[in-house]
Amino acid sequence: MEIAQVADPADPGAGLAAVVALRRLADRLEDSQVEQAMRAGWSWSEVAEVLGVTRQAVHKKHARRLIAAGVALRRR
C-alpha cells in the first residue's frame, strides 16, 4: 500500500472519497459479520466484546434486522 497515494496533495478528493469508501466497507462488513456470528450461535455479549461496544448498542443496531431475517437469537 502506498501511503503517499492516500495523502496525495494533488488530489484531496480521492483521499476523501477513500474515507467514504472505507466507512461503507466497515458498515457492510459489520452487518454481514454480526449476522454470521449470530447465525453461528454467538451471544450479543460476545459480539459486543469483540466489536468493543456495549451489548445494548449492538442489540439496538442489529436485533430487528436479524429477527426479520429469521435468525435464531440467543438471549444473552
Binding site: M1, E2, V6, A14, G15, A18, V19, A21, L22, R24
Partner: peptide, 10 residues
C-alpha cells in the same frame, strides 16, 4: 467504491 477503496490500499 472499488476504486476509492484501492486508493486506501484495499
Amino acid at each position: 467504491w472499488e476504486q476509492s477503496l484501492a486508493v486506501a490500499g484495499v
